[in-house]
């Protein structure tokens, strides 16, 4: 199960555009030397993976709490907020499922397009939605909702932060690897 090819290509271009410093046309020799010194085989991010792992376990509790509280306070809400909250719940559920899958696949299998898609979904969609539900008092935020929203917001914030770092590291690692691959044949020819 992979992303469609056009989406993968655009996400790859987005990653190379955003996470590569455009001021320098080529990485310096010292950076490649550092890459060879490190020579890490696994560039997956441990904090990001931990966030994703616990977020996967916490999401069902968030969902049940949200549905129960929405059902309890449904009669006291204004009409337009009823529609808005139901729409937000459905959209967040779908985006959360897609996001968690892309995050695990991108981080564990070192796939840059998947990780970029995960980061975009987290930063552009989930983060504003959770802030809206957390700080908009007009939707009658209850204590249980406030509690689960705070935890989910912390998870999403951590994933935005660690995802950015992991994506940047992975892009640079992939770039250095592809750069050094062109010299692989020369070494074979020399021997």
């Amino acid at each position: 199960m992979d992303l469609p090819e056009p989406i993968r290509r655009r996400l790859g271009d987005f990653s190379r555009t955003v996470f590569v410093d455009q001021s320098r046309t080529q990485p310096s020799f010292e950076e490649h030397a550092n890459f060879l010194d490190q020579n890490k085989d696994v560039v997956s991010s441990l904090p990001l993976q931990m966030s994703l792992y616990f977020n996967m376990w916490f999401f069902p509790f968030w969902w049940i709490s949200e549905v129960v509280m929405l059902d309890l306070k449904y009669s006291a809400l204004a009409d337009y907020y009823k529609f808005i909250l139901i729409t937000i719940l459905i959209v967040m559920t779908l985006i959360e499922a897609i996001r968690l899958y892309l995050g695990n696949a991108g981080n564990l299998q070192e796939k840059v397009p998947e990780l970029a898609g995960f980061w975009l979904l987290t930063f552009l969609l989930q983060f504003p939605l959770i802030l809206f539900q957390l700080f908009n008092e007009a939707v009658l935020v209850q204590p249980l909702e406030r509690g689960v929203h705070i935890i989910l917001a912390l998870f999403i914030f951590a994933e935005v932060l660690f995802g950015f770092v992991a994506l940047r590291t992975m892009v640079r690692h992939t770039e250095s690897r592809f750069h050094l691959r062109q010299f692989h044949g020369i070494q074979e020819l020399r021997t």
Binding site: V42, Q49, Y53
Partner: peptide
């Protein structure tokens, strides 16, 4: 502990 966490979460 980081090594064990890395083994569990990432697999390395």
């Amino acid at each position: 502990t980081v090594a064990e966490l890395r083994r569990f979460f990432i697999g390395g």
